[in-house]
Simulated assay, not measured.
Amino acid sequence: MELMRAARLHLPSRTLTIEEVPRPVPGPRQVLVKVEAAGVCLSDVHLIDGTLTPTYLQQEAVTLGHEVAGTIAELGRDVTGWAAGQRVVLQAGDIRDGLVLTRGVDYDGGWAEYALAGVDTLFNLPDAIPFEQAAIIPDAVSTPWGAITTTAGVRPAQAVGVWGIGGLGAHAVQLLRVVGACPIIAVDPLPAARRRAVEFGADMALDPADPQLREQVLAATGNRALEVAFDFAGAAAVREQALTVLAPKGRLVLVGLTDTPLTVNDGALFSYLQHQILGHYGSAVDAVPQLVALMEGGRLDFSRSVSDVLPLADAAKAVHRLHTKEGEPIRLILRP
């Protein structure tokens, strides 16, 4: 039996350890991928600190990592159209028996030397795109892309607001620029995050504690207010504030995950203005290849998004850095 190293989260104790585990063997319509890069996401942090708990995990431990890029090492039975050595990026999850399962949450992910992937979750990765940038496309980029293009249906020249300029929100700003939203107003309490938002294409960046925030939003939108607001922070205060600057029939899209209750302070006003609150999770199956094509075509560049690359052995260090925001990382990458 061949062994490999993997970063395993033990759910009962919420401890993360680097372990020697059996190297997976691909089954029918599966491939074994040699992991070249795996992203570290805030949801990984929340799995470790207990804020999030896997819904469908069948064991007490799981290899983390839902953002993965690498090369095909081995083909399982009935796999056609793929070859060993081919560069690939993996969808962050798949659908089994009607259930949406997330890689590195509900089944073993890519914080390891090798990872299993069903052929339905594989996408070809052009040679021009570095593994480190490709790895963050599933989730860090595809989730805001789905929120913008599918759930919110943002159209050119629509005024939008983005609350929370972290790993998802920073990419949302960049993607909103691509689809033609205008103006793009970023909101974050951290000065570094606000600077980042402007660098990534926001027209203005505001502090949520600014008592003049509503007035500034109205001035920037010609008194239209926001047609769409995105909550990437998963915070009640964000939702409450966003609703105060939504235009009639405006949409608030909840992307940041939280287990706190969702409340509307003024139900009568909410109904009168015909506001909508939309939940969002993940992305459609065509999101990753769309984004790969946009990167290959020069429309998107995620080189600024990779804040650092660390060895797999430093997985705990990467989690700590993301949790404490040490160095204000957008995305940290593990390289087995």
Rank of each mutant, 00 (worst) to 15 (best):
E36A: 12
A219I: 04
D231T: 13
L99Y: 13
Q58M: 12
G118K: 12
T324E: 13
K317L: 15
A61K: 09
L252E: 03
F302T: 04
D139S: 12
A242G: 02
V306T: 04
A140C: 06
A147C: 07
E296L: 10
Q216S: 14
Q133G: 14
A247W: 10
P261Q: 03
V319C: 11
L9K: 11
Q290C: 07
L64F: 07
L218F: 15
L310R: 04
V33D: 10
V35S: 03
S307F: 01
A157E: 06
A6H: 03
K325D: 07
R23K: 12
A172R: 03
D266E: 15
G110M: 09
V154Q: 11
L52A: 15
I184S: 01
E132A: 15
G98F: 06
G256K: 08
P12R: 10
L47M: 01
D266G: 09
F123P: 05
L75D: 11
I277A: 06
E36R: 14
L190K: 05
L9T: 09
L334D: 03
A140P: 04
H10V: 10
L332F: 01
E227S: 10
T15A: 05
P24Y: 08
I18C: 08
G50E: 07
Q274I: 00
V179N: 04
L206T: 03
H323C: 10
L262N: 07
L213Y: 08
L116F: 02
V21D: 04
D97Y: 11
Q241E: 11
G76K: 03
A84R: 05
R224P: 02
